[in-house]
């Protein structure tokens, strides 16, 4: 269960968003500038909203009025950035194990995650030797191995060519089915949201327009 109510103003852009959902996979959907990434960054703790409250599975991550703001490193969220952000000086294996080591875990899920994401042949490579799709799969694996309570995905397929996009999306669907992990996907592509999410929060110009189950979202997209 994720519960978000926040207000954030940065320069002349204001975002005001409130939603709560028990859905395992939620998509934040909207055009660029809708405030989706701002919401994601607020959940991750990468920015501090000017007001509001964020609760994840009963844990208060942020509560402006109560003066609570958990540090990023302690929020136990996995963040997959649009540009992957693999550490260029570390091999794929070391990248994958980075979060597990930082959180003092032994990486027991390593083989399973490597298998699920088909990363076995890439482990010894350096990030510069990977294709865009491979890089994103490693970034997803790295986030997963830090044992997050939720995986935040910030347009993880943007910038990939069609084949790589389909491949990464297939892997995400596989993760959803096999791991049952909570995910929050930021996207402006209806097909991505429909393939992965259970519920969609529609955003526009910094505000929430609507929140609807995925089948209704799909119908609406078809009706366009």
């Amino acid at each position: 269960m994720i519960e978000v109510a926040l207000r954030h103003a940065y320069r002349d852009v204001a975002v005001e968003a409130a939603f709560r959902t028990p859905a395992r996979v939620l998509a934040l959907f909207g055009d660029s500038g809708a405030g989706k990434t701002t919401v994601l960054n607020a959940i991750a703790g990468l920015l501090t909203p000017s007001a509001g409250r964020i609760v994840l599975d009963g844990t208060v991550l942020f509560d402006h009025d109560a003066g609570i703001c958990l540090p990023v490193a302690r929020r136990q969220i996995g963040y997959v950035f649009q540009d992957g952000r693999l550490f260029p000086h570390l091999s794929v294996r070391a990248n994958l194990l980075y979060g597990a080591r930082a959180r003092g875990r032994d990486g027991a899920d390593f083989d399973r995650i490597v298998d699920l994401l088909d990363l076995g042949a890439l482990l010894a490579r350096m990030p510069a030797q990977l294709s865009g799709g491979e890089r994103q799969r490693v970034a997803i694996g790295r986030a997963l191995l830090s044992a997050p309570r939720i995986l935040l995905l910030d347009e993880p397929l943007t910038g990939l060519h069609r084949e790589a996009r389909d491949q990464v999306l297939d892997h995400l669907v596989r993760l959803k089915l096999e791991l049952g992990l909570a995910m929050l996907l930021v996207s402006h592509q209806p097909a991505e949201a429909i393939a992965l999410a259970d519920e969609v929060v529609l955003m526009q110009s910094g505000a929430v327009l609507d929140q609807l189950p995925i089948d209704r979202f799909a119908q609406r997209q078809l009706g366009r």
Binding site: A44, L46, R74, R75, G78, F87, Y98, S146
Partner: peptide, 8 residues
């Protein structure tokens, strides 16, 4: 920032 989200 990425390292931070990984718990470092």
């Amino acid at each position: 920032r990425a390292a931070e989200t990984l718990g470092a």
